[in-house]
Design a protein around this nucleic acid. Structure first.
Lengths: 195, 195
DNA sequence: GAGAATACTGTACGTATGTGAACGATGAGT
DNA sequence: ACTCATCGTTCACATACGTACAGTATTCTC
């Protein structure tokens, strides 16, 4: 069995992926046939069988729109090395596929917060970044947390030693916060930045 | 028309969302009925009509599995302000819903790269971060780029003045790169970090 | 030159599915 | 008392859909 897809097979596979991306659901057998001008659903069945044999899709039996991508539809390839030569060659060195939205927990306890200020610059958390936060009432030493001080939310590093807890910025221009009362809203589990 | 959903309506809506999250496709009318023990598809139709009136879903006519969420299924809420009081209250201040994977372009020209080294610390790009890169052969002044130098990929700030182009790290401990040849692979359009 | 894999057409079957209509029960609001 | 939205049932219809099977033609491999 050949591992590589033929050009036509790849086009069918790409169409399924694109359809999921644009319509949020996989296409039906006949929608694929219509897209490529095939007169019969049987043709598409052959393609699907091949894609299934290659491990690219799963087909739920007697399930309408039952084509399941085994590669994340919204994933992007993570490259291990980039080879010299050409950017086109680079894509062959795919280490893994990641679904960006799958990197963060999907609980109802997760929310995002726009970062304000530069008090955490030393940890690479910049103004305008989106901080992904998992709600929890306390934190461990050195965790980066969202804390609430008098109606104001702030991102700082949580410190605890013995019965003592305080907040520390990661920017030498700011002082640790030891005297003011605060409560922990949650722990920062991720940072997302858009240029 | 009331804006708020009743408990049962919310459960139906949540089931649709959960179904998309777990099965990658919206449920059929009868699958919803089966989930809640309804004896008839008509009951579900009523619910769907209500959810549609509330602007939560769209229903494609005569389209199998044609329920379309108008709120991102994999989205997380972005909070504007966090109010004092309780974490539970905070969630009411939702500014918008974002689909994390939708923040980045979905072209085939997008890939990700694991950041190595600390040469861009000053821009908040830390070792271990995932850099999202859009392929392009050149860049503008001050863009953060992925450049290839003798088989080695590196992330630096692209500088151009007149006919002169060079690369600059954002870390005072490193020197600008002016003498070595390099080629631009793409432009860094985002940073993703996981704690 | 035999055999497999690929690439199609055509026809057919059973059914899962969206849709629609008619109707009943309950509870809240005025 | 009356209305109205919500919540539910039953029956029915047309069809979009997955699936299966029987062919044909071309290309590639051994």
């Amino acid at each position: 069995m050949k591992e590589q897809l033929t050009a036509k097979q790849k086009k069918v596979f790409d169409f399924i992926k694109d359809h999921i991306r644009s319509e949020n659901v996989p296409p039906t057998v006949r929608e694929i046939a219509a897209r490529f001008g095939y007169a019969s659903p049987g043709t598409v069945q052959d393609y699907l069988r091949i894609l299934k044999d290659r491990g690219l899709i799963n087909i739920k039996k007697n399930f309408y729109r039952g084509i399941e991508l085994l590669v994340p539809a919204f994933g992007i390839p993570v490259l291990g090395r980039i080879r010299a030569g050409a950017p086109e060659h680079a894509v062959e060195d795919i280490e893994e596929w990641i679904d960006v939205s799958g990197l963060f927990p999907r609980d109802n306890d997760v929310f995002a917060l726009r970062v304000m200020g530069d008090s955490m610059e030393g940890s690479g958390i910049m103004e305008g970044d989106l901080a992904v936060v998992k709600k929890q009432p306390s934190a461990g030493n050195n965790d980066i947390v969202v804390a609430l001080m008098e109606d104001e939310a702030t991102i700082k590093r949580f410190k605890s030693r013995g019965n003592n807890v305080w907040l520390e910025p990661d920017n030498p221009r700011y002082e640790p916060i030891r005297e003011r009362a605060f409560s922990v809203i949650g722990k920062v589990v991720g940072i997302i930045r858009n240029y």
